[in-house]
Simulated assay, not measured.
Amino acid sequence: MKAVRVHEYGKPPTIDDIPEPTLQGPLDVLVKVDAAGVCRTDLHIIEGQWAEKSGVALPYVIGHENAGTVVEVGAAVGSVAVGDKVILHPLVTCGLCRACRAGDDVHCAGSEFPGIDRDGGMAELLRTSVRSCVRLEEGLEPADVAALADAGLTAYHAVRKAVPLLHPGADVVVIGAGGLGHIGLQCLVAMTAARVTVVDRSAEVLRKATALGAHRTVLSDGGQVEQVLELTDGDGAQVVLDFVGEHGTEKEGVAMTRNAGSYFVIGYGGRLDVPTIDIISREINVVGNLVGSYNDLDDLMTLAAMGSVRLSTQKYPLTDALTALDDLDGGRVPGGRAILTS
């Protein structure tokens, strides 16, 4: 089968012909990957940012946002069947550790992460676990939801944690309404009655944000902190969701957060440097966010089936994966997600 593999960090991946995966256990599921999302994390992997954390042996197949059709199941699988269309939770979890039993399977003690620490889904076939499979409702197609498996799941997870902090009329700021942020924006509109202000450097992205339900938009042109403070009567927002997390948004996000408010870090790549006296005197919270749980993904698919969350996508065939990665790196996928299709 064809697959996109990293052979050496710092160099472009290649499209290789490799053996097809096979079932290895009774709970395994083999999925024909109809759609795979292209994520900025894939760029970070290629750059080598994940080399130490993942410990993966090269070469290996990238791709952690996957949806497709079940083609084979293990002997103990009963909840999905051959022919089912599914979206895959990015983690393969054990189901037995304390975190899994508590519904916090994103912190499973024995998890594997296809596309991060083992072969992923930028390929024709992917081996995963039945515990990762969420069946798609009628009307949802793999190519339309694949990126929700990570980008959407991460955005939903952050918004779900922020919801109790956002009373009706509270101010929430979304920094960056591109691939992750435009999903988080829709989740906020669907799940809260807060006033949403979107900050982005692209006027086109801001226009799309308004169409998706943003109440106010601010162009990131150097005066964005002052504009946000002006819009919030000088106080800042109860919650700031930073979907960029680099190039200075870290400092700006904290400055946009009101006293006793919360700054959520979702995008990454930068560094947060806040004097501890500021954290104490202002009593602000800094909240980290990884991907969400299986239940988060199931909830997100409900929102997608209801039409409350839609992905803006740019589709490429699997054979054009290198072009898709280059377009993402070059900023040529504005306000949406690149999707590889079979």
Rank of each mutant, 00 (worst) to 15 (best):
R207L: 14
K208F: 15
A209P: 04
A211H: 15
L212N: 03
L212E: 08
L212M: 15
G213P: 05
G213K: 10
A214V: 01
A214L: 06
R216Q: 14
T217F: 06
T217S: 06
V218N: 00
S220I: 05
S220H: 04
S220R: 06
S220P: 08
S220K: 01
D221L: 05
D221N: 07
D221G: 09
Q224P: 07
Q224T: 14
E226G: 09
E226V: 01
Q227W: 09
V228K: 01
V228D: 02
V228F: 00
L229H: 07
E230D: 11
L231Y: 04
L231D: 02
T232V: 11
D233I: 10
D233N: 14
G236K: 00
A237R: 03
Q238T: 13
Q238E: 14
Q238L: 03
V240D: 04
V240F: 11
L241T: 01
D242V: 03
G245A: 06
H247A: 12
H247P: 06
H247Y: 11
G248A: 11
T249E: 04
K251W: 05
E252S: 09
E252R: 02
G253K: 00
G253I: 02
V254C: 05
V254H: 08
A255D: 08
M256E: 02
M256A: 03
T257A: 08
T257V: 13
R258P: 11
A260S: 15
A260G: 15
G261Q: 02
G261H: 03
